[in-house]
Design a protein around this nucleic acid. Structure first.
Lengths: 153, 153
DNA sequence: CTGGACCTTCAACCCGGCTTGAAGTCAAGG
DNA sequence: CCTTGACTTCAAGCCGGGTTGAAGGTCCAG
Protein backbone atom coordinates (compact mmCIF):
# COMPACT_ATOMS: atom_id res chain seq x y z
CA UNK A 1 0.00 0.00 0.00
CA UNK A 2 1.04 3.55 -0.66
CA UNK A 3 1.88 5.86 2.17
CA UNK A 4 -0.44 8.77 2.45
CA UNK A 5 1.73 11.67 3.40
CA UNK A 6 0.78 14.56 1.17
CA UNK A 7 -1.27 17.43 2.49
CA UNK A 8 -4.03 18.88 0.38
CA UNK A 9 -1.91 21.93 -0.28
CA UNK A 10 0.95 19.84 -1.62
CA UNK A 11 -1.33 17.85 -3.85
CA UNK A 12 -2.97 21.01 -5.11
CA UNK A 13 0.41 22.43 -5.95
CA UNK A 14 1.49 19.26 -7.71
CA UNK A 15 -1.51 19.13 -10.00
CA UNK A 16 -2.08 22.84 -10.33
CA UNK A 17 -5.43 23.06 -8.64
CA UNK A 18 -6.80 25.06 -5.75
CA UNK A 19 -7.40 23.16 -2.54
CA UNK A 20 -11.04 24.13 -2.83
CA UNK A 21 -11.30 22.24 -6.10
CA UNK A 22 -9.91 19.08 -4.51
CA UNK A 23 -12.38 19.29 -1.64
CA UNK A 24 -15.09 19.91 -4.19
CA UNK A 25 -14.12 16.79 -6.13
CA UNK A 26 -14.31 14.82 -2.94
CA UNK A 27 -17.72 16.29 -2.13
CA UNK A 28 -19.16 15.20 -5.46
CA UNK A 29 -17.66 11.73 -5.22
CA UNK A 30 -15.02 12.05 -7.90
CA UNK A 31 -12.32 11.56 -5.30
CA UNK A 32 -12.69 9.09 -2.43
CA UNK A 33 -12.47 10.31 1.14
CA UNK A 34 -8.82 10.27 2.09
CA UNK A 35 -7.23 9.18 5.34
CA UNK A 36 -6.73 11.85 7.93
CA UNK A 37 -4.11 12.86 10.41
CA UNK A 38 -5.27 15.17 13.17
CA UNK A 39 -8.36 15.85 11.12
CA UNK A 40 -6.38 16.84 8.05
CA UNK A 41 -6.53 15.03 4.73
CA UNK A 42 -3.49 13.00 3.74
CA UNK A 43 -3.05 11.84 0.18
CA UNK A 44 -0.86 9.31 -1.57
CA UNK A 45 0.67 9.82 -4.98
CA UNK A 46 -2.12 7.59 -6.24
CA UNK A 47 -4.47 10.47 -5.64
CA UNK A 48 -2.20 12.76 -7.62
CA UNK A 49 -2.48 10.31 -10.48
CA UNK A 50 -6.24 10.21 -10.21
CA UNK A 51 -6.33 13.98 -10.32
CA UNK A 52 -4.22 13.89 -13.46
CA UNK A 53 -6.68 11.47 -14.99
CA UNK A 54 -9.49 13.82 -14.08
CA UNK A 55 -7.61 16.70 -15.62
CA UNK A 56 -7.14 14.85 -18.88
CA UNK A 57 -10.73 13.69 -18.95
CA UNK A 58 -11.95 17.23 -18.38
CA UNK A 59 -9.69 18.62 -21.09
CA UNK A 60 -11.06 15.99 -23.42
CA UNK A 61 -14.57 17.18 -22.80
CA UNK A 62 -15.74 14.73 -20.20
CA UNK A 63 -17.85 16.05 -17.39
CA UNK A 64 -16.80 15.40 -13.81
CA UNK A 65 -19.54 12.86 -13.65
CA UNK A 66 -18.11 10.94 -16.57
CA UNK A 67 -14.66 11.20 -15.02
CA UNK A 68 -16.14 9.66 -11.91
CA UNK A 69 -17.41 6.71 -13.93
CA UNK A 70 -14.03 6.36 -15.59
CA UNK A 71 -12.27 6.15 -12.25
CA UNK A 72 -14.90 3.94 -10.70
CA UNK A 73 -14.49 1.63 -13.66
CA UNK A 74 -10.79 1.46 -13.08
CA UNK A 75 -11.35 0.66 -9.43
CA UNK A 76 -13.97 -1.98 -9.85
CA UNK A 77 -12.04 -4.06 -12.38
CA UNK A 78 -13.76 -6.85 -14.17
CA UNK A 79 -17.44 -6.11 -14.65
CA UNK A 80 -16.89 -2.42 -15.19
CA UNK A 81 -15.14 -2.62 -18.51
CA UNK A 82 -18.52 -2.92 -20.15
CA UNK A 83 -19.46 0.37 -18.64
CA UNK A 84 -16.34 1.96 -20.00
CA UNK A 85 -16.95 0.63 -23.46
CA UNK A 86 -20.47 1.95 -23.31
CA UNK A 87 -19.24 5.32 -22.13
CA UNK A 88 -16.76 5.43 -24.97
CA UNK A 89 -19.37 4.48 -27.53
CA UNK A 90 -21.72 7.16 -26.31
CA UNK A 91 -18.94 9.71 -26.42
CA UNK A 92 -17.42 8.94 -29.80
CA UNK A 93 -20.04 10.58 -32.03
CA UNK A 94 -20.04 13.61 -29.79
CA UNK A 95 -16.31 13.94 -30.17
CA UNK A 96 -16.55 13.45 -33.91
CA UNK A 97 -19.14 16.18 -34.21
CA UNK A 98 -17.00 18.42 -32.07
CA UNK A 99 -14.00 17.86 -34.32
CA UNK A 100 -16.03 18.66 -37.42
CA UNK A 101 -17.34 21.88 -35.99
CA UNK A 102 -13.97 22.89 -34.67
CA UNK A 103 -12.29 22.27 -38.00
CA UNK A 104 -14.91 24.25 -39.89
CA UNK A 105 -14.39 27.07 -37.46
CA UNK A 106 -10.66 26.78 -37.83
CA UNK A 107 -10.89 27.18 -41.57
CA UNK A 108 -13.19 30.11 -41.20
CA UNK A 109 -11.02 31.80 -38.61
CA UNK A 110 -7.86 31.37 -40.64
CA UNK A 111 -9.46 32.99 -43.66
CA UNK A 112 -10.61 35.74 -41.35
CA UNK A 113 -7.10 36.39 -40.08
CA UNK A 114 -5.13 35.61 -43.16
CA UNK A 115 -6.74 36.36 -46.45
CA UNK A 116 -6.68 39.76 -48.00
CA UNK A 117 -10.14 39.71 -49.53
CA UNK A 118 -12.26 42.80 -49.70
CA UNK A 119 -15.25 40.98 -48.44
CA UNK A 120 -15.24 37.94 -46.24
CA UNK A 121 -17.96 35.50 -46.95
CA UNK A 122 -19.38 33.51 -44.18
CA UNK A 123 -22.25 32.21 -46.19
CA UNK A 124 -20.66 28.80 -46.49
CA UNK A 125 -21.07 28.40 -42.77
CA UNK A 126 -24.78 28.25 -43.27
CA UNK A 127 -25.21 25.36 -45.62
CA UNK A 128 -27.96 23.69 -43.66
CA UNK A 129 -26.11 22.12 -40.73
CA UNK A 130 -23.00 21.71 -42.80
CA UNK A 131 -20.36 24.08 -41.55
CA UNK A 132 -17.92 21.60 -43.02
CA UNK A 133 -18.73 22.75 -46.55
CA UNK A 134 -16.38 25.63 -46.06
CA UNK A 135 -13.71 24.62 -48.51
CA UNK A 136 -14.36 27.49 -50.90
CA UNK A 137 -12.68 30.06 -48.75
CA UNK A 138 -13.23 33.55 -50.08
CA UNK A 139 -15.20 32.66 -53.18
CA UNK A 140 -18.53 34.47 -53.24
CA UNK A 141 -20.69 33.81 -56.25
CA UNK A 142 -23.96 33.13 -54.48
CA UNK A 143 -25.59 35.74 -52.31
CA UNK A 144 -23.75 35.86 -49.02
CA UNK A 145 -25.84 35.49 -45.96
CA UNK A 146 -23.29 37.27 -43.87
CA UNK A 147 -20.98 39.70 -45.52
CA UNK A 148 -18.20 41.23 -43.54
CA UNK A 149 -16.15 43.93 -45.16
CA UNK A 150 -12.58 43.08 -44.36
CA UNK A 151 -10.30 45.72 -45.80
CA UNK A 152 -6.73 44.49 -46.47
CA UNK A 153 -4.34 46.45 -44.29
CA UNK B 1 -35.43 48.51 -45.42
CA UNK B 2 -36.85 45.19 -44.44
CA UNK B 3 -40.38 44.92 -43.19
CA UNK B 4 -40.62 43.72 -39.64
CA UNK B 5 -43.58 41.44 -39.58
CA UNK B 6 -42.56 38.32 -37.74
CA UNK B 7 -43.71 37.68 -34.21
CA UNK B 8 -41.30 36.30 -31.66
CA UNK B 9 -43.05 32.97 -31.83
CA UNK B 10 -42.61 32.74 -35.57
CA UNK B 11 -38.96 33.64 -35.36
CA UNK B 12 -38.43 31.13 -32.59
CA UNK B 13 -40.04 28.46 -34.71
CA UNK B 14 -37.94 29.35 -37.73
CA UNK B 15 -34.64 29.12 -35.92
CA UNK B 16 -35.57 26.39 -33.48
CA UNK B 17 -35.32 28.36 -30.28
CA UNK B 18 -37.67 29.08 -27.43
CA UNK B 19 -39.07 32.56 -27.27
CA UNK B 20 -37.44 32.92 -23.90
CA UNK B 21 -34.03 32.45 -25.47
CA UNK B 22 -34.69 35.22 -27.96
CA UNK B 23 -35.76 37.60 -25.22
CA UNK B 24 -32.69 36.57 -23.28
CA UNK B 25 -30.44 37.36 -26.24
CA UNK B 26 -32.02 40.76 -26.45
CA UNK B 27 -31.55 41.31 -22.72
CA UNK B 28 -27.84 40.61 -22.93
CA UNK B 29 -27.38 42.77 -25.97
CA UNK B 30 -26.77 40.06 -28.52
CA UNK B 31 -29.89 41.06 -30.38
CA UNK B 32 -30.95 44.70 -30.76
CA UNK B 33 -34.30 45.86 -29.45
CA UNK B 34 -36.82 45.23 -32.20
CA UNK B 35 -39.66 47.43 -33.30
CA UNK B 36 -42.97 46.83 -31.64
CA UNK B 37 -46.59 46.70 -32.61
CA UNK B 38 -49.04 47.01 -29.78
CA UNK B 39 -46.17 46.34 -27.42
CA UNK B 40 -45.21 43.13 -29.15
CA UNK B 41 -41.86 42.56 -30.78
CA UNK B 42 -41.80 42.42 -34.58
CA UNK B 43 -38.82 41.00 -36.38
CA UNK B 44 -37.53 41.09 -39.92
CA UNK B 45 -35.87 38.15 -41.65
CA UNK B 46 -32.63 39.99 -40.93
CA UNK B 47 -33.08 39.01 -37.32
CA UNK B 48 -33.60 35.43 -38.33
CA UNK B 49 -30.27 35.59 -40.12
CA UNK B 50 -28.59 37.10 -37.09
CA UNK B 51 -29.96 34.29 -34.96
CA UNK B 52 -28.54 31.79 -37.42
CA UNK B 53 -25.18 33.48 -37.14
CA UNK B 54 -25.44 33.26 -33.38
CA UNK B 55 -26.32 29.61 -33.64
CA UNK B 56 -23.29 28.87 -35.79
CA UNK B 57 -21.00 30.89 -33.58
CA UNK B 58 -22.24 29.05 -30.53
CA UNK B 59 -21.83 25.68 -32.19
CA UNK B 60 -18.29 26.69 -33.08
CA UNK B 61 -17.47 27.36 -29.47
CA UNK B 62 -17.97 31.09 -29.29
CA UNK B 63 -19.61 32.50 -26.23
CA UNK B 64 -22.64 34.71 -26.61
CA UNK B 65 -20.41 37.61 -25.78
CA UNK B 66 -18.11 36.82 -28.67
CA UNK B 67 -21.12 36.39 -30.92
CA UNK B 68 -22.19 39.84 -29.87
CA UNK B 69 -18.83 41.24 -30.95
CA UNK B 70 -19.08 39.39 -34.23
CA UNK B 71 -22.46 40.90 -34.99
CA UNK B 72 -21.50 44.34 -33.74
CA UNK B 73 -18.49 44.14 -36.02
CA UNK B 74 -20.71 43.38 -38.95
CA UNK B 75 -22.94 46.31 -38.09
CA UNK B 76 -20.26 48.90 -37.51
CA UNK B 77 -18.44 48.41 -40.78
CA UNK B 78 -15.09 49.92 -41.31
CA UNK B 79 -13.15 50.22 -38.06
CA UNK B 80 -14.61 47.02 -36.68
CA UNK B 81 -12.94 44.63 -39.08
CA UNK B 82 -9.82 45.02 -37.00
CA UNK B 83 -11.77 43.81 -34.04
CA UNK B 84 -12.92 40.80 -35.97
CA UNK B 85 -9.43 39.97 -37.06
CA UNK B 86 -8.27 40.29 -33.50
CA UNK B 87 -11.08 38.11 -32.28
CA UNK B 88 -10.22 35.51 -34.85
CA UNK B 89 -6.56 35.61 -33.94
CA UNK B 90 -7.32 35.18 -30.27
CA UNK B 91 -9.61 32.30 -31.04
CA UNK B 92 -7.48 30.36 -33.50
CA UNK B 93 -5.01 28.79 -31.03
CA UNK B 94 -7.90 27.90 -28.77
CA UNK B 95 -9.61 26.11 -31.61
CA UNK B 96 -6.39 24.37 -32.59
CA UNK B 97 -5.86 23.15 -29.06
CA UNK B 98 -9.42 21.97 -28.95
CA UNK B 99 -8.98 20.01 -32.15
CA UNK B 100 -5.81 18.37 -30.84
CA UNK B 101 -7.44 17.32 -27.63
CA UNK B 102 -10.56 16.12 -29.35
CA UNK B 103 -8.58 14.04 -31.80
CA UNK B 104 -6.48 12.50 -29.05
CA UNK B 105 -9.66 11.66 -27.24
CA UNK B 106 -11.15 10.27 -30.40
CA UNK B 107 -8.24 7.91 -30.88
CA UNK B 108 -8.41 6.84 -27.29
CA UNK B 109 -12.13 6.29 -27.40
CA UNK B 110 -12.00 4.27 -30.56
CA UNK B 111 -9.40 1.96 -29.11
CA UNK B 112 -11.59 1.70 -26.05
CA UNK B 113 -14.57 0.61 -28.07
CA UNK B 114 -12.87 -1.34 -30.78
CA UNK B 115 -9.67 -3.12 -29.89
CA UNK B 116 -9.56 -6.47 -28.24
CA UNK B 117 -6.55 -5.89 -26.05
CA UNK B 118 -6.25 -7.37 -22.63
CA UNK B 119 -5.16 -4.13 -21.14
CA UNK B 120 -5.93 -0.69 -22.43
CA UNK B 121 -3.20 1.79 -21.87
CA UNK B 122 -4.02 5.37 -21.26
CA UNK B 123 -0.51 6.28 -20.32
CA UNK B 124 0.05 8.07 -23.58
CA UNK B 125 -2.61 10.53 -22.58
CA UNK B 126 -0.33 11.76 -19.85
CA UNK B 127 2.79 12.74 -21.72
CA UNK B 128 3.19 16.13 -20.10
CA UNK B 129 0.43 18.18 -21.73
CA UNK B 130 0.69 16.16 -24.90
CA UNK B 131 -2.45 14.14 -25.35
CA UNK B 132 -1.62 14.18 -29.03
CA UNK B 133 1.16 11.62 -28.54
CA UNK B 134 -1.38 8.87 -28.60
CA UNK B 135 -0.41 7.22 -31.85
CA UNK B 136 0.83 4.01 -30.25
CA UNK B 137 -2.59 2.66 -29.52
CA UNK B 138 -2.38 -0.45 -27.39
CA UNK B 139 1.36 -0.71 -27.10
CA UNK B 140 2.52 -0.65 -23.49
CA UNK B 141 6.22 -0.93 -22.91
CA UNK B 142 6.70 1.88 -20.42
CA UNK B 143 4.94 1.85 -17.09
CA UNK B 144 1.33 2.79 -17.63
CA UNK B 145 -0.04 5.55 -15.49
CA UNK B 146 -3.55 4.33 -15.94
CA UNK B 147 -4.15 0.74 -16.78
CA UNK B 148 -7.65 -0.42 -17.49
CA UNK B 149 -8.24 -4.10 -17.82
CA UNK B 150 -10.45 -4.48 -20.83
CA UNK B 151 -11.41 -8.08 -21.24
CA UNK B 152 -12.31 -9.00 -24.82
CA UNK B 153 -15.89 -10.19 -24.88
C1' DC C 1 2.98 32.40 24.78
C1' DT C 2 2.30 34.22 20.52
C1' DG C 3 2.19 34.56 15.67
C1' DG C 4 1.76 32.69 11.20
C1' DA C 5 1.06 28.98 8.00
C1' DC C 6 -1.71 25.64 7.02
C1' DC C 7 -5.65 23.01 7.71
C1' DT C 8 -11.04 22.26 8.82
C1' DT C 9 -16.35 23.09 7.91
C1' DC C 10 -20.27 25.22 6.07
C1' DA C 11 -22.96 28.37 3.62
C1' DA C 12 -23.11 31.64 0.24
C1' DC C 13 -21.85 33.39 -3.98
C1' DC C 14 -20.36 33.55 -9.07
C1' DC C 15 -20.67 32.51 -14.07
C1' DG C 16 -23.05 31.52 -18.55
C1' DG C 17 -27.06 30.32 -20.63
C1' DC C 18 -30.94 29.86 -20.38
C1' DT C 19 -36.10 28.12 -18.41
C1' DT C 20 -40.05 28.61 -15.56
C1' DG C 21 -43.78 30.80 -13.32
C1' DA C 22 -46.88 34.44 -11.98
C1' DA C 23 -49.46 38.15 -13.34
C1' DG C 24 -51.00 41.21 -16.82
C1' DT C 25 -52.21 42.91 -21.92
C1' DC C 26 -54.26 42.45 -26.32
C1' DA C 27 -56.84 41.01 -30.76
C1' DA C 28 -59.68 37.82 -32.82
C1' DG C 29 -63.43 34.40 -32.97
C1' DG C 30 -67.76 32.23 -31.30
C1' DC D 1 -69.08 39.57 -23.71
C1' DC D 2 -66.04 36.04 -22.90
C1' DT D 3 -62.60 32.88 -23.82
C1' DT D 4 -58.41 31.49 -26.03
C1' DG D 5 -53.84 31.98 -27.27
C1' DA D 6 -49.94 34.53 -28.03
C1' DC D 7 -47.75 37.97 -26.35
C1' DT D 8 -45.62 41.13 -22.25
C1' DT D 9 -42.61 41.88 -17.75
C1' DC D 10 -39.96 40.58 -13.87
C1' DA D 11 -38.06 37.61 -10.50
C1' DA D 12 -36.47 33.37 -9.37
C1' DG D 13 -34.58 28.86 -10.29
C1' DC D 14 -31.40 25.38 -12.42
C1' DC D 15 -27.02 23.30 -13.95
C1' DG D 16 -21.99 22.44 -13.65
C1' DG D 17 -17.94 23.62 -11.66
C1' DG D 18 -16.11 25.57 -8.77
C1' DT D 19 -14.50 30.11 -5.42
C1' DT D 20 -14.91 32.96 -1.36
C1' DG D 21 -15.42 34.10 3.35
C1' DA D 22 -16.13 33.49 8.22
C1' DA D 23 -15.01 31.06 12.20
C1' DG D 24 -12.26 27.87 14.16
C1' DG D 25 -8.40 23.93 14.88
C1' DT D 26 -3.48 22.43 14.93
C1' DC D 27 1.35 22.71 14.49
C1' DC D 28 5.84 24.64 14.81
C1' DA D 29 9.33 28.33 15.47
C1' DG D 30 10.93 32.15 17.99
Amino acid sequence: MQEANLTIGEVAHLVGLKTSAIRYYESVGVLPEPEREHGQRRYSTETVRRLQVIDIAKRAGFSLDEARVLLATEQAGSPAHEQLRELAQRKLPEVDALIDRAQAMRRWLSTATGCGCQTLDVCALFGAQAPSTLEQGCRSDDAPILKLTLIPS
